[in-house]
Design a protein around this nucleic acid. Sequence first.
DNA 1: CATTGACTAACGAACGATAGTTAGTTATAA
DNA 2: TTATAACTAACTATCGTTCGTTAGTCAATG
Lengths: 208, 208
Amino acid sequence: MDRGNTKQEILEASLDLFSVQGFEATSISQIAGAVGIRKASLYSHFENKQAILDALVKDVLGQYAEHSIFAKTDWEKYNDAEEKPVLTSDAAAQMILGQIRYILHDPHISKARKMLAIEQFQNEELARLQTKQNYSDVMQYFTGFVKYLIRNGVLAGEDPEIMAAQLCLPVSTWINLCDREPDREPEVMELVNKHIRQFFRMYDARRA
Amino acid sequence: MDRGNTKQEILEASLDLFSVQGFEATSISQIAGAVGIRKASLYSHFENKQAILDALVKDVLGQYAEHSIFAKTDWEKYNDAEEKPVLTSDAAAQMILGQIRYILHDPHISKARKMLAIEQFQNEELARLQTKQNYSDVMQYFTGFVKYLIRNGVLAGEDPEIMAAQLCLPVSTWINLCDREPDREPEVMELVNKHIRQFFRMYDARRA
DNA sequence: CATTGACTAACGAACGATAGTTAGTTATAA
DNA sequence: TTATAACTAACTATCGTTCGTTAGTCAATG
């Protein structure tokens, strides 16, 4: 009678539903139906409904920490490297467009992002998590990136944090837009492309 | 037995609750309790629960269209004016900081913004509304602003839309951050200030 | 001026449906 | 044989909603 990985299936089905309807609007029966079991069977795997959300926050979003480009890339490591990637606006645009496509289409990341958008006002823990994933981690990554570009004489500027904000925060807004209206992705990608090239032109070291 | 403006009180109480818990998680009893009546009495004013949300979307967000700076200001009108406001980075920073403080603290606007953030994935109408208020209207306003500054020889740049995005979209992200974590407003305001001055420096017409 | 009647907005009580949850049972796999 | 994970059945609470009633408001009427 054991189906093997039911617990994981419950988490996935829950994320599917929570990321569209939200936690409160999703019923235990709905989750059970999506998994293909009776609702009472859920309680063999989770103490109660809240425990599913808690596990999602810990698990799926912990998974994020492992797989996210923003959480794991360290630009310092390229300091002594012979071959340095991403030193032109073209390479940067390609890199960032690739990252956007990835985090936009990766099922776990995109669903987790939507769920957090819905649940961000529920409690302080979820609020802080949303800030971390949608803002702090991204800002930290791009601040490192900008510093790397300055060190390598590509860009010039006094405040890397502000430069990073100007580079990545518009992109954050565009990602939210694509989450709501996926049809607009091509149009948004075009804007991102123009934006990055413009950014590199304005902060070009040879211009200062 | 008539309390005068019960219908309006119901809408306000509903917005209060929806902007924190969301629509589904808020019960009719909760709304009635906040207003100070029994839940059955709500049905003297609204056909059903959904009708409250519909009225909020139409009413409160229609109110936005009337009062929002972004929906009503037209930069064209300053073309022939003798005294032109906002021609320096200092004035722009002050203006934008004032606007942020306003839309951040105005109770209707901030609650409507949070409610839309929670409900944006419910249906396409709410998704489009969220895009309009959080993105399109703001972008249109700032694109006009940037064009106005270019016409008046303050800024120089080829693509006013991209410039507007670089100016206002980071601010959008910061406003969302303050919605979640109001304590961080001072820190955010400082970033906004730096950001705007940097923006004006980079696109300064005398630099081109 | 007092009475009436229509109208409105509140009420208590109850509805069926569904929520989350528990208990007890059965089948399967180790 | 034992532990686990599924099941059926049932629980209580609450959901959104409806019904019939009551208490005020106001205009028209006598």
